[in-house]
Amino acid sequence: MKFFGLLSVIIVGFLLLSATKDFPNWGDEDSPANSGPVSSFYIEKTEEKTKVPNMVTAVLADYRGYDTMFETVVIFIAGIGIIAVLRTYGSNESIPKNQVGDEGAGLLARMTCSLILPFIQLFALYVVAHGHHSPGGGFQGGVMLGASYILLALAYGLARAKSCFSEKRTLVFAALGIFIYVGWGVLCLVMGSEFLNYSALDSILPGGVEMARSHSMLAVEIGVALTVTAIMFSMFSNLSTKGRLDKGL
């Protein structure tokens, strides 16, 4: 069996290498992916049509917003799937009494975390909101925000973190994030345009068609960030406690 594994790896490697023979040169300006009609449309028209300087965000949240919606759903499914497989309700009898409860990682860690946590959360919100101008956006900011709650759980104990972000709240936030994203698309439907066609919203958002697209991107990024935050924390708490949600790492 090992032999077949090695053989298939060699064959696949050979295939992949043989394909590179026909590739455009590294950094070639005239390659189809760089100068094709689609890419040149993104590069030339993004600023004009959406008023977003960072065209990655525009491609992510507007041109291919339908993809991003499903990426968010993928994250949602990952969290729900972990809960569905791991979570055990009720019976905590198997755990010895002295192990229930989680007092955290000690005084020094608590002090450090209390100093840096607010700044990490602030930075996370900055990353979410600043995605139009610099690298960032819902996924990255959501991960930072989720990480800040994980940090809280590590330093102060899971019980403390759960008092901020209970299980019910994680589920509500996760569903709410997708609800914001999809609901924004449905709002466009209600306004009489295609799904996720943000330009239909210029009558209720200030600043014309282009700014409507820009604002809508911010809205859907916030939805993504909510889902990612909640799912990050939910995954951590479920995986580190084997689904019992009693005592952290």
């Binding site: 990682a105 000690g106 020094l108 860690a109 450090t112 100093l115 840096i116």
Partner: peptide
């Protein structure tokens, strides 16, 4: 400066 000594300590 804050985190590196803390993590080393832990």
């Amino acid at each position: 400066m804050l985190t590196s000594p803390t993590s080393t300590h832990l």
